[in-house]
Amino acid sequence: MLIGYARASTQDRRLELQREALTKAGCPRVFEDKVSGTRADRPGLAKALEMLRDGDTLVVWKLDRLGHGVKQLVDLVDKLHARGIQFKSIADAIDTGTPSGRFFFDVMASLAKMERELVVERTRAGLEVARQLGRKGGRKPKMTDSKIESAKKLLASGVPPKDVAKNLGVSVPTLYRWVPASAHA
């Protein structure tokens, strides 16, 4: 059985073209969503996936209707294949029920894996260069050296920690993290 899935993004809420193409392709059932493809919760897709059985084919109008990003798309098609379900994209002329369609998805999966590995490699290289330049990752500390000195003086003169923290624009726990209670007792 051919099961259709149509999705309109939040910007373009028209599904008629997709619905018509899926019906012409022979889909007796078409499930729909009117949400962004980046959202994980797509009730129409969930219903379509639930209805699909071994030997069925999930049909979409275009690849981008099923998901954003190669990895997301390849992962979904891999899950379908594990269940014995094929995938077809009408406008892109892709059908994983054919050798050329399976080859296309194997190539996509390889490209997605290589892309992930390159991102990890570039990130590690960038962090290493930053470390060599003396940079630390993360957020800048709220407490500067001058704030720490001011806090110590104010606390030593008897100003309550709550007031010192408020004057410096930090919380009391942050104040105590940088100026432990033993330092001003």
Rank of each mutant, 00 (worst) to 15 (best):
T23M: 04
S110E: 11
A8F: 07
E121Q: 15
L52C: 11
V59P: 03
L118D: 01
L76V: 07
A8R: 11
K162F: 05
S89Y: 03
D92E: 15
H68E: 09
F105V: 08
H68C: 05
A181P: 10
G169N: 06
F105P: 10
H68N: 11
M108T: 06
G84E: 05
P160F: 08
G126I: 00
I3A: 08
A6W: 05
T38E: 08
A130N: 11
L73C: 00
G69H: 08
L63T: 03
G44A: 01
V119I: 15
F31W: 14
V107A: 13
D163F: 00
T57A: 08
R139C: 09
Y5F: 08
S100Q: 04
R102P: 00
L58Y: 07
L63N: 01
T98K: 02
Q132F: 06
A93R: 13
V59E: 06
D12G: 12
A156C: 04
G169H: 06
L133Q: 15
V35C: 12
V119M: 14
V120S: 09
L168M: 08
G84L: 10
F87T: 13
A25T: 04
D12S: 09
V70L: 15
V120I: 14
G69D: 10
K147D: 10
H81Q: 15
A181M: 09
H68I: 03
G138R: 11
D92Y: 05
R42T: 00
M108R: 05
K79A: 14
P160A: 14
V35H: 03
H68R: 15
G4M: 07
K34W: 00
R42S: 03
A25L: 10
R65N: 06
Q132M: 11
T144P: 14
L155C: 06
D54L: 02
G4S: 11
R42G: 00
S36D: 01
D145T: 15
V59Q: 07
L154E: 14
A46H: 04
Q86G: 14
M108A: 10
N167H: 12
D106S: 14
T10Q: 12
V170K: 11
P43W: 04
P99S: 12
F104G: 05
M51S: 13
I94K: 03
S36E: 11
G55W: 05
S100W: 04
R83D: 06
C27K: 07
G84H: 11
V172F: 00
K147W: 04
A125M: 14
A91M: 13
K153W: 04
G97L: 04
D75A: 12
G134E: 09
G69F: 01
M143Y: 14
L127D: 02
L49S: 05
G26C: 13
F87C: 13
E115T: 13
D54E: 15
V159F: 06
D163H: 13
Y5D: 01
L127R: 13
Q11C: 01
E128V: 05
R29I: 06
L49W: 04
K88Y: 07
S36Y: 05
G134P: 12
R39S: 11
D95T: 07
K47P: 00
L118Y: 09
S100E: 09
K152T: 02
L76P: 02
G134T: 10
D33Q: 02
E117V: 07
E149G: 07
S150M: 13
S110Q: 10
V60N: 02
L73R: 03
G134R: 12
D33G: 01
K140P: 10
C27T: 02
